[in-house]
Amino acid sequence: MQWQVGNVKITKLVEMETIGSTRFILPAATNDEIRKLPWLIPHFATEEGRLKMSIHSLVVETPSRRILVDTGLGNDKQGRGVPVWNNRDTPFLEIMAAAGFPPDSIDTVLCTHLHVDHVGWNTRLVGGKWVPTFPGARYLFGKTEYEYWRDYTAEPDKVAVFNDSVKPVVDAGLVDLIPSDHRLCEEISVIPTPGHSPGHMSVLIESAGERGLLSGDVAHHPCQMAHLDWCSVVDSDPAQSAASRHTIFSRFADTPTLVIGGHFSAGHIKRDGDAFRFEALGS
């Protein structure tokens, strides 16, 4: 699936799609509560109120750059907290290449944050060793985000993610640590949206008078536009996460800004009373 923002093209590459089984992420999003938001159906939820979500990467092509935003789960990884995320064997790189994006054509990898489902394809297993998947790219990590996870030891699954999907790229000398208001190029900059993780960033696209927002995990699902206080169980700071949602949705509501989430597809944010709703541009 592709979209255009001025002179910038965005291509979504899906690694995994799910229906339901998301209560562990958004416990407040019960089937009954979701059915009270009919605008979610059919693009973002089923008639029964089960959430539709995906794990995907976004290729952002500017006139001068080919940027991969977030890199999914990856193959062959171990020690993940969700069983189906362990030891995966999928043709994601072949799917990328078939879409016109072989790994050696990517010049920039930008991770909105360093959670398991956004860094996995940073590396691949070759001869028993984790090596960078995109050796011709500079990998951009938020400085705040990176330093938090570098020093984090509390949960073994989080440490495993850092050790197999972040540290090898650092060790290879391919990483640039950026501030959360960094400008990558004329058309692309990042916006600080902390709360889901300490250094979470969203991506702003501005080109030829048009705007796009790759919101990352500031919201896992559009239902959080209607309920800003619905937080993911993995939010590092729930109050800050809700505040970031309010700030970012207020900024772009009722504008023609194309918005694409880290786990949902494209649409426009509309004000709806004291909160917001999302108008889909296709599933």
Rank of each mutant, 00 (worst) to 15 (best):
Q2E: 10
G6R: 06
N7M: 03
K9F: 06
K9Y: 06
V14A: 06
M16K: 15
T18L: 14
G20I: 14
R23H: 14
P27H: 10
T30D: 04
L40F: 05
L40T: 05
L40P: 00
H43T: 12
A45E: 02
R50Q: 07
R50E: 06
S54R: 10
T62W: 07
D70M: 05
G74Q: 11
K77M: 12
G81C: 09
N86S: 14
N86F: 15
R88C: 13
D89Y: 14
D89A: 15
T90N: 13
T90D: 10
M96G: 10
A98D: 01
A99I: 03
P103W: 14
P103R: 15
D104L: 12
S105H: 07
S105P: 08
D107M: 10
D107R: 09
D107W: 04
T108I: 13
C111Y: 02
H115P: 00
V116K: 08
G120S: 11
N122F: 03
N122M: 04
R124I: 08
L125E: 13
V126S: 12
G128L: 05
G128V: 07
W130S: 08
P132M: 11
T133D: 08
F134G: 11
P135D: 09
L140R: 11
G142A: 12
K143L: 06
E145A: 04
A154Y: 03
E155F: 11
A160R: 10
V166P: 00
A172C: 07
P179K: 14
D181P: 04
H182M: 06
R183K: 13
R183H: 05
L184S: 02
C185V: 05
E186F: 08
I188G: 12
P192W: 05
P194F: 09
P194N: 07
M201L: 03
V203A: 10
E206Q: 14
S207T: 01
G209Q: 08
G209S: 10
E210K: 14
L213F: 05
L213A: 05
H220P: 02
C223P: 00
A226W: 01
H227P: 00
D229F: 00
S232L: 07
S232E: 07
V234N: 07
D235I: 09
D235W: 09
D235G: 12
A239F: 01
S241V: 04
A242K: 03
A253L: 11
G261C: 07
S265T: 10
I269F: 02
R271T: 07
D272V: 03
G273C: 02
G273Y: 02
D274N: 01
F278G: 01
E279C: 11
A280H: 13
